[in-house]
């Protein structure tokens, strides 16, 4: 064979309009997975403020751990980010259940429907949780 023409990866994500349910589910699962693992590292970093807390200031509620968390929670942007995190976590959980079913070979014919169901359910849960997340003292 003389020569050939490699069209590269343009055709992959350039063709997102043609993706079907299973492909979208994979993309969302991967994306939410990256967000969650990133959050896990950040989360432990923030919680590290609890190391070496002085018992006296903890009694007074003025220790670094308590003040860091309430400080973050007082920012509106953090509240919105938390709603985003909830959305990401709920979708990852629901689609994860769907993937476990697929792994067990259950309901493979309706894998597209179960993806749409997990999207809808995620939306519903997030909308219902917005008051709880944005409510409470903002300080």
């Amino acid at each position: 064979m003389s020569q050939s023409y490699n069209r590269g990866t343009v055709e992959d994500f350039g063709r997102w309009r043609e993706f079907s349910a299973g492909m979208w589910a994979w993309i969302f699962h991967k994306f939410t997975g990256w967000v969650l693992v990133g959050y896990l590292f950040t989360h432990i970093a923030v919680l590290s403020t609890s190391v070496g807390v002085d018992p006296a200031s903890a009694q007074a509620g003025s220790d670094l751990y308590t003040s860091t968390i309430s400080g973050l929670e007082s920012l509106l942007i953090v509240r919105f980010l938390e709603v985003g995190l909830l959305a990401v976590a709920v979708f990852h959980i629901l689609n994860g259940i769907r993937l476990l079913m697929v792994d067990l070979g259950v309901g493979l014919e309706s894998q597209d429907k179960s993806f749409y169901a997990s999207l809808l359910l995620t939306g519903a849960i997030v909308v219902a949780s917005v008051p709880t997340f944005l409510g409470g003292k903002l300080a």
Binding site: G22, D103, Q111
Partner: peptide, 8 residues
């Protein structure tokens, strides 16, 4: 990764 593209 069970994207189901092949099956479709």
């Amino acid at each position: 990764q069970t994207q189901f593209s092949c099956t479709e």
